[in-house]
Design a protein around this nucleic acid. Structure first.
Lengths: 193, 193, 193, 193
DNA sequence: AATGAATGAGGATTCATTCAT
DNA sequence: GATGAATGAATCCTCATTCAT
């Protein structure tokens, strides 16, 4: 008699707690106990559901990536025309759940983790490849052979604004950042004409 | 009878070892023992010289920042004209000791550390302020009121390419990245005309 | 409505699983989870039937002892004459289910367990007393006052060959071992004449 | 500046404590904490010196084996003639430090451990080979082709009395056991004549 | 200056056991 | 009867840090 509802809700709660804990501590160096406490369960239960600390953290990363992907798909819905789609792709990174302080902290931590953790690296690659291919397919009709370079530039801007946000104090302005990237992209595209 | 020479050389060796260890492990999550072993001394000695693990790591970050600053000053020497100075500023981040794999890993780790460590945050701010003011002072004569935005964009590109390098495999092409930023900057400046 | 059949079969299955697990791991240091998994049930059910881990292990020991006793009785059936009965007694320890690798491992583990577990010690004593009295009652007509010493010697030989088997590699030769003990006993008895 | 004296004495103390703890608990299932406490040090120090729990236990076994070997050599000194040497070999197992209650318990535990621990098995084999070759070389001049079988029988008697001692209560009589084996061997040798 | 000795404070993980369903 | 959920209590091990030499 499995109780998938409980199983699912517990796992979800633990993943949320993990992200919150990473965000609060600003490190991947969190304890299973801390995550479990935040989720209101024992650390033994966390192991029961995930098997190991690494699995919890990987699940957290996967959750963040899925959130980003969902946001992206949501924003692409009904959007036609490469330029509009590019705008949506960029905006996806700066909207919804993705650009919250704690998620950014977790995101940064995952970049670090990707340096030594195989699975983290794999997941990060998936994200990067996905972003790049989304940018490329919409840039090609607009920029032809310059598309690859432009894609790299836009991707770097996105990541750059992310990492800078992590070390900033004061209120965030995600919309402004997205607008800045958009404006820069406009200029770069026009300059080709 | 202090022997500043020994003191200095030990400290330097430990800092180098710390950076190497961070770079190799890809995390700030290194042990004092690991650093000391790499430096060929006992972990007790590391404490003797630095007082605590945090001090070692902070010193390592300071060392990296100083290296970056020295590289910057070196490249500015004899350079006149704002556009050339901008080129030098950008290049400084992608040349010399700064853009080595292990330093990038350490750099990334410091960004994480800045989330919860006061001193790390302070140092990071110093770097950011310094970069921003260097960019600003040379962008102002070229871009007037657009200078702040351009400075942010260039800074984000630099950081973005750094972070992306951290998760890349394969040979690095620092010169190419610097050139890309330069070209982008050229386009953005020309578009203003 | 108790269902003694299910109860019995579950208990039996768990005991078998316990012996198998002990034999495979070579230790009494097995987990209830491991035993239950092997028996195809949940660990909670194991507790439901046995109350505690110790009870499972004790039941396993009891099962082995019963097997040995059954084998002994089987071999004594229809055998008359003290020398023949002695042969049967010895053979019982090296035949049937008793001298299998996993049972020997469990046996050894029980000896260890008897050092600190009251019930295990009790059971072991029962076995030893039973063996001793079987040997004694048949040795007395053949060896008179030397019977006790001979009984001890034979018992030690049996246990000694058991323990040595536990640390051996390669195929077992239970019949050979029984024969060796028999031959030794023959010699010792003849020497008295 | 290594301080081998401290190092050695600590290691020795921990090994002694391990044997005592095993003997008292009657299991190899002891805790590093328990051993360390008994040795009057922290469990961290135990790890400092041995690296892991397994290493401590292996060292304990090695210590017991060395004690047995030393006793054997001591008893062989100045003894000539195969029969006398056999007597010394047998007596070595029942004299000195070897036949103390706690050592026997540890011994038994090691037999169990040899079932799944590679190093324990290796050490046990060394002991068995050594005993067997000692018995064989002295039995050959006395028993010719029967030497191998006699060696096995004597070895089994030694181990058998050991294991039975482990589950006995009341005062031990090591000398009596050795004498019993000797007498049995006498009879077996005479019967060949 | 330099080191080995020593430890206290965790932290991940395992497991027997209990409980609600 | 049977199970998954849940946990408290260990246990091994690591590590930063201190101290005597």
């Amino acid at each position: 008699m499995p109780r998938p509802d409980i199983q699912t809700s517990r796992r979800r709660a633990l993943v949320q707690a993990a992200i919150a804990e990473i965000g609060k501590r600003g490190t991947l160096d969190v304890t299973v106990g801390g995550i479990a406490r935040r989720a209101g369960v024992s650390s033994a239960l966390a192991h029961h559901y995930f098997g190991s600390k690494d699995h919890i953290l990987t699940a957290a990363m996967r959750h963040i990536l899925q959130g980003l992907r969902a946001e992206h798909l949501r924003r692409l819905r009904g959007v036609t025309g490469p330029r509009e789609r590019l705008r949506a792709t960029i905006a996806a990174n700066f909207g919804g759940q993705s650009f919250r302080r704690e998620v950014i902290a977790a995101w940064l931590a995952f970049y670090v983790s990707a340096q030594h953790d195989r699975e983290a690296r794999r997941l990060l690659r998936v994200y990067q490849r996905r972003l790049r291919s989304a940018l490329l397919s919409d840039l090609r009709p607009l920029a032809g052979d310059d598309a690859p370079q432009l894609a790299d530039t836009v991707a770097a801007l996105i990541d750059g604004f992310y990492i800078r946000e992590a070390s900033r104090t004061g209120a965030a302005d995600p919309a402004g950042l997205a607008a800045r990237i958009d404006a820069t992209l406009d200029t770069l595209l026009e300059a080709r004409a």
